[in-house]
Design a protein around this nucleic acid. Structure first.
Lengths: 223, 223
DNA sequence: CCCCTTTGTGTTCAAAGTACACAGATAATT
DNA sequence: AATTATCTGTGTACTTTGAACACAAAGGGG
């Protein structure tokens, strides 16, 4: 194959939907475009992939450089190669989901002149540029499948958490309501979490027990 | 972003694991390398993606041009961007699974001088070039997840089929054995298939009833 | 001390999954 | 024509899992 032909040169961008839990709400991190086209619209963070790095490396570097975030749990989601997804250039997008706990999320860099960021509730997404709304939708759909077939939400709750917190996360992402007793029974009988012995103090009402995930993230049907 | 910089030019290849049922066996279509490096080793079919086509278009065209196969059911699986996956060039691979029924598979083009193909049982894969063994493994893993969460095997059995045939396909892909009565009950009570009224004649033993899938392919937990 | 809020807990019923054995239909054999 | 070999079709009891459901306990605030 003769790669000197320009037709085989493709531009690739990585795009990521980074989710976290902020005060009980599942949120996704978006960037605001400050220049045309789509000025003022929101986009998914990402970067252009160089040919001397893996897509994962690019993703990790982009997230750290632009957002200051480290240790984001990443999973590949989907590739979008429609010819019309950017009016100016032909760019292939590789989308990821990213999960980060609320403590690590605090280390997000302050907005620079050229970068404005915000966390949005996943049920309340603003106007997005290009086809990013579609990509985000696909990513949320992917996350939905993921949380019922693995304990991936460990990434949102790495340290101690309460069962109501975990349940709320599931409910928001799956867009359902669940019975507290059945939810609790599920997680405990599956042996996925363990009681730390501590309690959550300071909140309203009876203090909740604190749990932590026992195992590493792996595939396993939960629901 | 200044795309005139060469570092943003990436080479992309599409690679596909095409599965079919051949005399009750689940098989995958491989190509034999006729030149160095890896001469004599086997590879997944695919093509280099141009910047004026989608990856899906490239996949479909490659399959038809090199193999003569049409109407292969395709699903995106995974991207491999390791820097060391090809010793000579930096090529990013986008892998697909493809499903084709045994009748359509018969229209596979005869081997040309430069292309030698063969169907291999998925439990009996030959020596493969580059990282294609790893990619194929991932694709089979993907297929495994897919057949328990959707009726995607409809693509292997588009017209009439018998329940033992379908069961054998599941058993081979999942690498398990199942109870005939429970398997039958499952598919019938799920309402996924319907009795055509015909019977399979000519085989050994009691003729099996012929069924066909009622619905289009869609997500739905089966097992 | 009482009220408000939120968490923790057990049982009953329904549904789905699992295990299991024998009779029916055809082709091949005698 | 009868027998045998091979493969398919079928129902039931048991176990496990999922779903529905209400009240007591712990803490904070007035």
């Amino acid at each position: 194959m003769d790669f000197s032909l320009g037709k085989y040169y493709n531009i690739l961008e990585s795009l990521v939907s980074i989710f976290t839990i902020d005060q009980g709400e599942v949120k996704v991190l978006l960037l605001r475009k400050k220049s045309e086209p789509y000025r003022g619209y929101w986009i998914l963070p990402g970067g252009i992939v160089s040919n001397d790095e893996t897509i994962e490396m690019n993703m990790i570097d982009s997230i750290e450089a632009k957002l200051g975030l480290k240790d984001v749990y990443l999973e590949q989601c989907h590739i979008f190669s429609n010819l019309d997804r950017d009016p100016d250039d032909r760019i292939i997008a590789i989308s990821y989901i990213g999960l980060i706990d609320n403590v690590s999320a605090l280390f997000k860099r302050d907005d620079r002149d050229d970068i404005q960021t915000a966390w949005f509730k996943i049920g309340d997404i603003p106007k997005m540029a290009y086809d990013h709304a579609r990509i985000l939708k696909k990513n949320i759909e992917f996350l939905r499948k993921k949380i019922v077939s693995s304990n991936v939400l460990k990434s949102l709750f790495p340290s101690d958490f309460t069962l109501p917190e975990l349940q709320k996360a599931y409910e928001q992402i799956l867009n359902v309501t669940m019975d507290r007793r059945n939810f609790r029974k599920k997680f405990i009988t599956l042996g996925l979490i363990e009681d730390t012995g501590d309690k959550n103090v300071g909140g309203n009402g009876r203090p909740a027990k604190l749990y932590s995930f026992k195992d590493e993230i792996k595939e396993r049907n939960l629901f």
